[in-house]
Amino acid sequence: MSTQTPAIEVTDLVRRYGRTDAVNGLSLRVQPGRCYGFFGRNGAGKTTTIKCLLDLLRPTSGSVKVFGLDPARHEVEVKTRLSYVPDQVGFYPWMTVRDTLEYAASFRSHWNRDTERGLLDQFRLPLGHKTNHLSKGQRTQLALIAAICPEPDLLVLDEPTSGLDPIVRREFIQTVIGAYQDGAPGTRTVFVSTHLISEFEGLIDDFTIIDNGTEVLTLDADTARARYQKIYVRLPSVPHGLAIEGARLLHQRGRELQFVVNGNADDVRTRLAVHSPETIETESLTLEEIFVATLTPAGAAA
């Protein structure tokens, strides 16, 4: 692992609302230049964690560091180096697109006008329109422009593409790759929480799956796909109460069975061979399938 200061470092984070533990002992670390996926079901604690990173909420206990700094004590240093795109974007409704960008730029020490012009052209945003007349897709595009033009070291995205049409979602992701990442390859970090895992699949270097406020799985995406595999077999007959050590039965329909394995596909294939399968096929799980397999109790999907 790198010895650089992590872009984000969360250690034993706890955040309580009344008696509810929204985040309960979460730890994760995001290296600079990486694109980090933060996956969890609704209510898993994703937004609460992100709000702690942005100093919109204070941790109950544990620590949160951004660029090695405490966002509560070094608010300005941290905020000048990051941008945030939330799920619901709020703008002043009486401002035009042009005014909104000028207003956003006025808080920033740096603003790339070329990037702004390029993205405004690409998205064909009407500069003179008031923001309350924009569609949800246009509002997200405007928020993305405002987030990228300061060329921050860290881009925090919280469910950025939910509720958008597929074309806008694609453009959004392409903009993150192109206009944002390409500007300073190797140092621009993305932290994205999303349910649309398959859309972001190619972008994700590393990820954490969070459930009930704690980390369930952290891996880099290539390792995850190599480790989690689906084995499909058709047996001449299925012995009563068949159980294969090291494999989880995902589905069974008659003589066809589908198992999920974690890093031991070869062993499991050898164990299955004893039952003289008529066919045996292996494929990797996508990140979304890994998410579902990780958070579905054993047997529930069978």
Binding site: Q174, G178, Q181, P185, G186, G202, L203, I204
Partner: peptide, 14 residues
């Protein structure tokens, strides 16, 4: 790198 990364929607680092 950039147009290919955008087209395939993968990380430019990939």
């Amino acid at each position: 790198i950039r147009p290919l990364a955008e087209e395939l929607r993968v990380n430019r680092n990939t």
